[in-house]
Computed example of a mutant assay.
Amino acid sequence: MLNLSKIKHKDSKNFLLMAGPCAIEGEDIALRIAEKVVKIADKLAIPYIFKGSFKKANRSRIDSFTGIGDEKALKILEKIGKQFDVPTVTDIHESTDAAMAAAYVDVLQIPAFLCRQTDLLLAAAETGKYVNVKKGQFLSASSMKFAVDKIKENGNNNVILTDRGNTFGYQDLIVDYRGIPEMKSFNVPVVMDCTHSLQQPNQTTGITGGKPALIETIAKAAIAVGADGLFIETHDDIKNAKSDAANMLELNLLEDLLVKLIRVREAIL
């Protein structure tokens, strides 16, 4: 289990859960979602990290929602961490983001498209925080060893790798589950992103599509092949979500899904 001081249920045999809205849309919404997921995680004894992007830098259209302001969003993440006593994770996109975000959150996440950006990885490593690197859609699992090496060779052994599918044509992704044991061989925790792996990018509207009905399928398969954790974007008002609404999980479906996944986990241990 991760060596995070705030993570609860670390002695549980359950998988790690990173979950929350795609983006921090406002304090009330973020606190409401955090409270509901924390209650579920505590009830099921699942180690939990709240997820929320403080800004969205990779958008198809110029009019897409990108955030409510960096400092404002980061302060909300900090408040969630303190109020619910849970670790928090957010994406960073530039080297200058690393130290800024590290002052508010416990885990820095490297977006998939940026997983080869050496300066970004090194800046994240230098904060001493856990660094969750999303596997690029364009990379093999074996090539992620070099991302791990960049962080560890900069003096930080706190690395997580997250799979989020491989590019399959122009408008779809596919998950190669061979990648999970491959990345686990690097001696780091491996997480499956169950929602972004179901995106359908590059739509002609400029708005990414998705197949959220398959979240359970992706999650079950990931646990079955030994994933250490799951990454699930969730929202309690998806129709009004400002980012990635097409592939998020309805929050009211989360608990039942996690109960099923715990049974899968128990079956393979």
Score class of each variant (00 low, 15 high):
G155M: 05
G209M: 04
D236F: 04
N132R: 12
S140E: 01
S243C: 06
A241R: 00
M144N: 09
F186G: 05
K242W: 00
A227I: 05
V190D: 11
L122Y: 05
T234Y: 02
G229N: 05
A102Q: 02
V131H: 01
I40K: 03
T96A: 14
G165N: 03
P47Q: 10
C22N: 09
G169Y: 06
L120D: 15
E182G: 00
D97A: 09
G26M: 05
T127C: 12
I7Y: 11
E266Q: 14
M183L: 05
I92P: 00
Q200M: 12
Q200T: 09
D28C: 09
R32S: 13
D91M: 04
G179H: 07
S140N: 12
K134Q: 04
L173R: 01
T217W: 11
C115S: 08
N240T: 13
R178D: 07
S143V: 08
V105Q: 01
I207K: 09
A99N: 13
T127N: 14
T205F: 08
N58E: 13
K79T: 05
L17N: 04
A30M: 10
R59P: 00
A245H: 04
F84E: 07
K220R: 14
N202L: 12
G52F: 04
Q83F: 06
G67W: 01
A30N: 03
D256F: 03
D85L: 13
L173G: 03
V133R: 00
I232C: 01
S60D: 15
A227V: 03
N157V: 02
K184P: 04
P189M: 13
M192K: 06
N252V: 08
Q137H: 12
D193L: 15
S95R: 14
E25D: 15
A227H: 07
Q109G: 10
